[in-house]
Design a protein around this nucleic acid. Sequence first.
DNA 1: CCAATTGTTCAATGAATTTTGAACAAAGGC
DNA 2: GCCTTTGTTCAAAATTCATTGAACAATTGG
Lengths: 111, 111
Amino acid sequence: MSLPHPSTDQINLSNVLAALGDQTRLAIVAELARMGDGPVSCSHFLIFASKTNLSYHLGKLREAGVTRTEVCGTSRFTTLRRADLDQRFPDLLASIIAGASTADEPEQDTA
Amino acid sequence: MSLPHPSTDQINLSNVLAALGDQTRLAIVAELARMGDGPVSCSHFLIFASKTNLSYHLGKLREAGVTRTEVCGTSRFTTLRRADLDQRFPDLLASIIAGASTADEPEQDTA
DNA sequence: CCAATTGTTCAATGAATTTTGAACAAAGGC
DNA sequence: GCCTTTGTTCAAAATTCATTGAACAATTGG
């Protein structure tokens, strides 16, 4: 029925940052925010990665406590855990989403 | 004399998040903040990692644009690039530092 | 029941990251 | 000039992460 999610107080900062420190996952979160925090079904994110790979990335986001996934029939709906993240790390999610939306072109590290 | 640093507009969000999504580097940044944003010499961070390993992590932070390193004799002083980061990603650094300082015990992901 | 849809798990691979020790370089102090 | 201090570079090893395809499971529609 339901998948394992960390409780709010189990959400760890470096896990969250590591989860979001990946182009694909950051794009997923930005898209979730653009969609009003969800719920959004997995297939919606096929624009970002293959089905199998998506399963992996969505799992990472869920395990880090960034998203919540609810099973509904053969579909799964993902939501941003905004309230939980805000409680744990005020302003963090908002600033990340704002930064991700602001033209973040594929500019690599120029050291 | 001076080391290569990305310019402010070259600082990329997912690079910054990936840089901070590591316990050691997050601890270094939190310590820098605790020290008033630096400058702090490398050896100060020996509490977090070995000399060689520190060289690696401080390099990562510098390349991501999180810190600035200035050479001074045989020492190197690291500073937080707070103004640059604030300009690029408002509130991000402050929320991360606040979250890192708030008792972030070694709690692992409980998925 | 059969077929299609939605998404997962598994094992394998390739790639990137982290960590280490040995050797090195550049000051600075005596 | 030598020795110490501070920190780097290099190559290797260990670990972790990301990506893939094949096979599977659950639900829904006809």
